[in-house]
Write a protein that binds this DNA or RNA. Sequence first.
DNA 1: GCCATGACGGAGC
DNA 2: TGCTCCGCCATGG
Length: 121
Amino acid sequence: MNAYEIIYATVRQIPYGKVATYGQIAELSNLPRRARLVGYALFRVAADADVPWHRVINAQGTISESPFRQGNDYLQRSLLEAEGVEFSPAGKVDLRKYRWQPEVDPPIADAPIALPESDCP
DNA sequence: GCCATGACGGAGC
DNA sequence: TGCTCCGCCATGG
C-alpha cells in the first residue's frame, strides 16, 4: 500500500464534525514530519477521490489558500460549518475542541493527565 | 539529473 | 503575537 493510500485512508476516517491537521495525518500515516507530503497528496487526490479533504487543515487551525483553489477555501469553511465546526472571527478553528483524536476520546479536557507511575514498568 | 517549488510543522527571535 | 528559517520529499521544467 502506498503512503498516499494510507493518507487517504486516514483522512477518510475523520469523523463527521471533526478536523485533523496535516501533521496529524502524516503521523497517523506513519510519516512523521511529512506534513508537506500529506498536503501534496491531498492536493492531487482532492480532484478525483471521495476524500473529505475539507476536514484537513493546518496546525494553526486555519484553512490554507492556494492560487489553484481560490474560492474553494470558502467552500471548505462552509462544509465544516455545516458539520458544526465553529470558526473564530479570524477564520480559525478551535483545534482544542474539534481536533480528531483517533481511538482516544477523553471525556475531560481540563483535568491534568495523570501519570500512572505504578503501572508503568 | 539538478533545481525550484509547495494544501506544512516546529523552533528560534 | 508574528515573522523567518530550516527540514522533508514528491513533482515539474
